[in-house]
Structure formats: C-alpha cells, structure tokens
Computed example of a mutant assay.
Amino acid sequence: MTVNQPCVCANCGKRLFAWLMAQGDDVYDKFISDRKRSLFANLHGNVLEIDPGTGPNLPYYPKDINLIGIEPNPFMHSYLKKEAQKLGFNNIDLRTSTAEQIDAEDNSIDAVVSTLVLCSVPNLAATLQEVLRVLKPGGSFLFIEHVAAPQGTLLRQVQSTIRPIWKVLADGCHPDRETWIALENAGFKSVNYEHFKVPVPIVSPQIIGVAIR
C-alpha cells in the first residue's frame, strides 16, 4: 500500500513573497518618495542595488546610470524586468547572487544601494564588507533601512517577541536589528544617517543615509 506524502514546495515562500512585494505598499511608497528622490538624485556611473526586489526604487534613479541588480530570489526577476522596461531601463544587468557574495569585481562600483534589505541578510557584517569590496575608493553606499526601536520601549519588546515568526513570514527579516551600529563599525571612511518614523507598524523606526568608502 502506498501512502501519499504531502506535497512540499521548497520555493513557495519565495514565490509568495515576490508576489506580495509586487503588489506594493501605497502608504509607505507615498511617505518615502521624497526621501528616495533626494537620496538617489546624484547617482551616476555604475550603480549596484542589493536585492532590488520588484523594482520600487527604479522610478527614482537617473536614466543614464549603468544599473546592476543583485537579486537572489529568482521569482522577483520577472517583476523587476517588467518594471525596468516600463521605466526605460532596458539594459539592467540582473545577477543571481547574494549580499554576502556580491557578483561584482573589486573597486568597480560607484554606488551601492540598499533599501529594506539589511534587516534580512543572514550575515550583516559580511554583507557590509562585500559592499566595501566592490565600491570604488570614495564610492557611496546609500541606504534606507528599518531598524530596532529604542531599548526599553514597547515597540522594541514587540519587535523582539515576534522576530521568530516574522523571519518566516517576511523572508528572513529581523525587525529588531541595530543596523546603524553595524554600519558604524564596518570600516567606512564616514557614515552619516538620521532616524525617522514611518506610519507602518513593526518596520519603524528607519534610518536613511550615506556611507563613504
């Protein structure tokens, strides 16, 4: 007698997460648009985005940059390519690698971009070392990241409590990661950032800034 085993889809979580990201978040996108427009206004040359997802940053990029996307989730690729073509980025170089092992040469990138990504990388320190490796001397790391709420607050307690289930639901995201400390200790020549609040539970507060190699 054959016992039917339940069908297990190892990629279902990544496929679902890609679909959810493609739906967007109108509240957050509207809130963050001016900050993105200001942060990305002076991008030039070779620009590498870590985990560009479905392309929410593309509308804010200058059209004359050479754009490289490092996106490890293959189910994001079709959404990203569609958005890139719609906005005129027909030559985007999409590579399937990870933030801890960026598929790019040493000292080859003018700017690296990361938005809502450093919360979910398995090894934050290794990721920042990869950013430093691929950046040209004087190159910029531009980031917008959600981070841990202040110690002792109710929000910080909630972030820490829900972390195990949140990591499963949100593709590895750590809602209580003190990312700004890792940035300060990574070895950049300078790190400038500010904290700000967003009207979205759990993924607030956030930081925005620029680190220079």
Rank of each mutant, 00 (worst) to 15 (best):
D93A: 02
D110I: 07
P6I: 11
L135H: 05
S33K: 07
K167L: 12
C7H: 12
Q85W: 14
E83H: 14
K30G: 12
K189R: 14
F143Y: 06
H44A: 04
E184P: 01
P74G: 10
L20P: 01
V198H: 06
A126N: 06
V8I: 14
S114I: 06
T96R: 15
I92Y: 04
N42M: 10
N46F: 14
V47T: 04
V112N: 04
P59H: 07
N66H: 15
E178W: 09
E178N: 12
N4G: 12
N11L: 13
V198L: 07
D26R: 15
S97E: 03
H146P: 07
H77T: 08
P6Y: 04
Q85H: 15
E71A: 01
Q129L: 12
P201Y: 05
V112C: 03
I144Y: 03
L142H: 09
V117N: 10
P201F: 02
Y193S: 05
I208S: 04
G24P: 11
R133T: 08
A22Q: 08
F31M: 03
R156L: 07
R133A: 03
V3R: 13
W180K: 05
W166N: 01
S160G: 13
S97Y: 12
E105G: 08
A211C: 01
N4R: 14
E100C: 01
N107R: 01
D110R: 07
D26M: 05
K63C: 00
L116V: 10
L43Y: 11
F188H: 01
I50V: 08
V191F: 01
P52N: 05
N91M: 05
P205W: 10
Q157P: 00
Q5H: 02
I212G: 00
Q206P: 03
V112S: 03
Y28N: 05
G13Q: 14
R177I: 09
H146E: 10
A186Y: 06
G45V: 11
G55F: 10
R37T: 00
N11H: 09
G53T: 13
W19K: 11
E184I: 02
I70E: 01
V158Q: 10
K136H: 09
